[in-house]
Structure formats: C-alpha cells, structure tokens
Nucleic acid binder design. Structure first.
Lengths: 205, 205, 205, 205
DNA sequence: GATGAATGAGGGTTCATTCAT
DNA sequence: GATGAATGAACCCTCATTCAT
C-alpha cells in the first residue's frame, strides 16, 4: 500500500535503469508543473508527454494510465510529507510540546507552500482515485507521528486530537493560500495560535 | 435555509412560467444528486438532463453552459450558508460568545452534512470557475458575520481570527466527513473544542 | 413559380389580413437585417423571431420552414430588380443604346448597394435551395429585358450577349463592393466602361 | 498547376512522415469532393473524415478546426491560380496584348472548370472566414500580374482595369457555369469578347 | 392566432489509449 | 525501447421544428 517506486533505496544507480528513472522523473515533474499552472483541465497525457519531452508512447511504457500518474504524484507528496514530519518529530524529542508542535507546523507549511495548487488538486483527485485504503493508511501514519508526541505530554484522546489538528491546520493553510498572499512566517504565526489554543483546550477537556 | 433562491448565473432566460421554474429546479436537483453520487466525472450535460427528466436542449435554455450550472449551485449553497449563519448570529445576541459560537457551529455542520460530497466538489470547482471576485465577497460576508460577534466580545484582530476560524473549521469538518462516519453531534463536540480553544488563544494573543 | 405573397395587388388592405401582412414584413425585414450584418451564420429561426419581435411559433405560422424565408427573400429581391429594370427599360425607349444601358446600370448598382451582403448571401443560398426552375426563369426575364433593348439596336446574339453582360456586371459590382469602398458614381463609371466596351465588341463580332 | 503546396493554415502538426502527408492529402481531397457534390451543407468533419478514410481524431491532428480546412483549400486553389497565371504571363512576353490576354483567359477558365462548385462555395466561405488580409493580398497579386501586362501596352489605369477585368470575367465564368453547360471553348469565346472589348474601351478612356 | 417551453438529432472537438514502424 | 500517427467514444452545444397552453 505504500509507494513501490518512491525513494530509491540505494543511491547506487543500476546503469540500465538510469534512463528509465530519468524518464519517470521528467514525466512526474512535467505533471507537477502542469497541475500547478493549469489544474486538472490541461492535465492530459499528450500534454504531459510534450512538456516532459517524451512521446506519449513512452509515457505509457512507464505508467499504465493517466490516473496512475496522479496516484504516483500523490504517493510522492505523501512520502515527502510523512518523512519530513517524522524527521521533525525525531529531532524534537528534547523539546516542550509547544516547541515540538512548532517544528511540525513549519514542516507542514513549507510542504504546502511548495506547490500550493498541486496540493489542492491532488486532494480533490483523491476523491475519484481508487486510493481509499492507502489514504486511510497515510492519515493514520500522520496521526501516529503526532499522537505519539501528544501522548508523551499526556494529552487525552491523543489519536483523535492528532487527526483533528491535522484537518484544521490543513484547512487553515489551504484557506490562507487560496485567498491571500502570505509568506511562511505569517502563516506560521496564525497556525501557531490555532495549534496551541487547540492543544491547550484538548488537554483540559 | 431561509434563503430565497439566488440570482441565476447569467441566465439565458428568466423562468417566467411555473413550468419553467420547475424545469430549472429539476436541473439543479439532478446536478446536486450527480455531484453527490459521482462527482465531476459523471457531471455532463446529457447525463444531467437525463436525470432531470428533460432534454439537453431544455437545459441549455436555462443555463448557457455546463459551468453556469456549477456556478449557480455554488451561489445557492453560499446563499444558504450565509443566510443561515446570519440568522443564527441574529438569534444569538443575548448569549455569551461561546454559546453564540456554538450556534454558528451547529449551522455550519448541518450545512456541510446535507451534501458532503457536493461541498467538496464545489470547493474544487471554484478553482477553475471565473468566480474570484464573488468568492472573495462571500468569504468577506462570512468573516463579517463572525468578526462582528467576536468584536462585541473584544477579541483582538477579529477580522483575521474570524477568517482563520472559518478555514480551520471547514478543514476539520470536511476532514471528518471524508474519512469517518460521524453524526452531527460528534462533529459538533470536536469542532467545539477547536473553536473554543482557538478563540481563547486569540483573545490572549 | 413566381412569388405568391409578393406585391399586394390592390392597395386596399383587407382588414383581417393587415396584421398578418405586418408580421410577415417584420419577419422578412428582420431576416434581411440579420443576413446583412451576420450572414447565414446567425440566420436561425429563433434569432429571426426575436429580432422581428414575434415568437418562433408565430414565425412558423407564416413560413413552413427556415428555407421558405430565404426563398421569399430571394423572390422579393428578384421582383424588385426585375420591376426596376423593366421600368428603366420602358423609360428609355427614346434613348440611344448607350444611354439606355446607363439607365439599367444605375438601377442595377442601386439595387446591389442597398444590401450588399444580402445579395452575396442569397446568391450562395440559391445553390442549395430548390429554386432551379425559378432561377432560370428569373435569369430569362432579366435577359429578355436587356436583349429586347439590344435587339432594337441590331446587336447580334442579343440573348447571349444580354446574359453575359449581366454576369459580368454582377461580378464587377460584387467584386468592387466586396473589396473596396466605392460610392454609386464610382462604380457606375467603371461599370460603364465595361458595358460600353463589351457591347461595342459584341456588335462587331 | 505547377504550384507547390502552400503553407498550411495554422497546422497542429507538420506532416513529417510520408503516411502523414498522405493523410493530409486524403482529407483535402475528400473535402474538395464533398464541396463539389454537396456544398457546405454536408461539409462536416465526421463526413470529411469518413470520406477521407480516416478518423475524426486524425483529421484534428492536422487541422485545428473545420474552418482551417476551408482556409487551406482556399490557399491551395489561390496558389494554383496565381502560379498558373504567372506562368502564362511569363510565357506571353513576346505576344500581342490580345494574345497574352487569351492565354490568361484560358488558364482562368481551365481553373474554374476543374471544380466549379468548389469555387463558388469557397468564394462564399471567404465571407465568414478570417481571411481579409490574405484575400486582399491575393487580389493584389492577380491584379499585379495582369496590370504589369496592361502597363506594357500603355493601357491607362492599368491597376484598376486589371481588377475590374478580373471581377467581370469571374462573374461571367461563374454565371455561365452556374446556369448552363458549356465547354471550355465556348466559355473562352464569350469571355474573349468581353475581355477584348473591355480592354479596348479602357485604352480609349 | 400567438406564445415560448421543450425536443433531440446533428455536428464540432478532445483526449486516453493503441500499435505499426 | 521509443515514436507519433491513428482511433473513436464521449462530451459540449445549437437550432429547426413541434405542441400544449
């Protein structure tokens, strides 16, 4: 259920697969750029192939369908976020809850700022792709990272609080990005109030 | 819920006769049902007309394009939410901030629960429809309703806090609906913690 | 084969037909205006009815089909040209051939200048309307008027010369109108050279 | 007839492979046949593709729209006529004006006889296609070829005379073809009288 | 007679996918 | 492996015509 193609395990490239890897990357990068600039409307295989500098035929040698590209993009973005959060959590073991949360916040905001439109579009794409199980697993993974942290500080209902915090922050960040131009620091300041306030309330609940 | 029907997108024809009004309603209801069940994928004019029990030609007598139907749906849902929130706010003048917020929360949750998938889909549709100005105005309207309430209780930065609260709650509710089956009361309980916690933090900020 | 509705024989209007006459005129005038401004592309029954200020249903009470409107327009324009030429010929019995031709030329140019685009469009419409016999008869009528004149001055092959003169002048006038802005006098001057030159050559042939 | 194929409208794709070139030719030939037999009424992309023996999709790989096919046909026919006239003019340098004109006449008549109905239809199509500038340039080109010849023989107003001669001959030839069945020789005989007569008159003017 | 709502076949265009070269 | 020409189902939209009121 986790992405099969994701991070190359060993940096030692098998020579005969280097080209293939480059082609796949070109396709995925082209896809990202198209989604970012034009959304799903211009996201079609001919266009992707053209932007990626390969032929449609080649594209179909690496991806069995258009949806498979979306799925792979989703998996990549998820992997990136999951890994970044896990690393931030690992590096926060010595900190207070608030400090640890701030680190996670920064990571999340940085992730969303990278390709804001892609995030929104992939969120929607989830609704028609056959990813139900994988999506649940991903959300569980994220919730685990955060609930582990919360539990350490004796926040009750850590699992549910973690999920709700993720949902709320996601809504806040996407909302700000969709309506206003704000830099990472401004978003962070606003998200911090939300996160701290919510956690405090959850603690007392 | 008390809202009168909003002004149509850029209607081909104002429905003057009762029959015409019924036709427009049938088209909008069919559209809602299709979005709810199958999302944008099956949202095509032939299908809409078929489900509505009219011909495509008739559909195009009342809506200049497929997008115009989406726009009208968005306008209707927005009107409904705006009016319901305004009314709830009006009926909460005697209450404490927390009680007033709870009323608004209940209205919002009820609204989202009505057609959860439609809400998600229309949110995405906004990104490719020419609604920028209207969307800003709508968000301002909602923020106004809430910031007026917040200001009455001396919450600082009422305008921004109102917007962020809306974003966060929206994310929370959509998140819960997308992943889990939860009834209105359960969602309310979780949203309440978020709202109260955030407002308290905002007050002390 | 000649138009059934054409010129009202007696100016005494039958009261119960006055309204009908007005409706038919409105439709034909609207049709002319649309053809002049937008060609066959916007020439559709709904649009015609709208411009004429009547309902489509009413339009279909007076014309059995869209093509019937085109046919009636063609008949009207033809009647006008035929009558105007016949009258000009009748008034030219005392004149020289050149003077008589000039009168016919002026009539023809004035006719084309009235609705230049309509003329071009109806010429094309002839090619798909079932008017073969009528068109032949019309061309014969015009040729008769002119060949009678030519025969009076002993031009050989009067019939064929008449037809060819009409074709050539038609081409010249339409050509000038399509490419350049020229007033009636300028067109007349150029057409005169053509007509006189051609007739002199035909005489000597 | 010696003309190389003109540059395509605004081609989706330059046909690089032999197969592609054959496809484009098939589409253009099918288009010509349909226009010749049924006019613009049956000129629809599905029908064209069917007659050409390809799929609609293929048609749209080479032509961005239906109108683009008409435009390409117009360009081809114009190129053919322009080149044929230029060649005929070049081969007539030693001849008298009348002899040279006769050569041009023969070329023009042969051109019109090839696809008479196509000529008429494309003439009409010009009125709704975005070709204004190109059409002017084409008419100027033809006028240049002929006015150069006229000027050599000291015909006054050579430019205008050339244009008017073209218009008149075009009208004559199209008129004859539309009404009567006549072979090239008969048309030539009649056009000759017109051309010689007009030029003589223009000279004396 | 007049109205205008409704019909639905027809036609333009796109794009995911296949396959011969 | 790569290419890109070809396919055709699917979808948007129009407009001549009908018919209930």
């Amino acid at each position: 259920m986790t992405s099969p193609v994701a991070q190359p395990a060993s940096p030692r490239k098998q020579p005969r697969q280097a080209r293939a890897r480059a082609t796949v990357d070109a396709i995925l990068q082209a896809s990202t750029r198209i989604l970012q600039k034009h959304g799903l409307e211009k996201f079609n295989t001919n266009h992707i192939a053209e932007v990626a500098g390969v032929s449609v035929g080649t594209l179909y040698q690496y991806f069995p369908s258009k949806d498979a590209i979306l799925i792979e993009l989703i998996r990549q973005k998820r992997s990136q976020l999951r890994d970044a959060l896990a690393e931030a959590a690992a590096q926060s073991v010595e900190l207070t809850l608030e400090q640890a949360l701030d680190n996670l916040l920064r990571v999340t905001i940085a992730h969303q700022l990278r390709w804001p439109m892609v995030g929104r579009t992939l969120d929607y794409a989830e609704s028609f792709l056959p990813l139900a199980d994988e999506s649940l697993a991903f959300k569980r993974d994220l919730a685990d990272i955060i609930s582990t942290l919360l539990a350490k500080f004796a926040v009750p209902d850590a699992e549910m609080v973690a999920r709700d915090l993720i949902f709320a922050l996601n809504g806040l960040i996407e909302g700000i990005l969709a309506t206003q131009t704000a830099d990472a620091d401004q978003i962070f300041a606003r998200a911090q109030i939300l996160a701290h306030g919510y956690i405090r309330a959850a603690r007392e609940n």
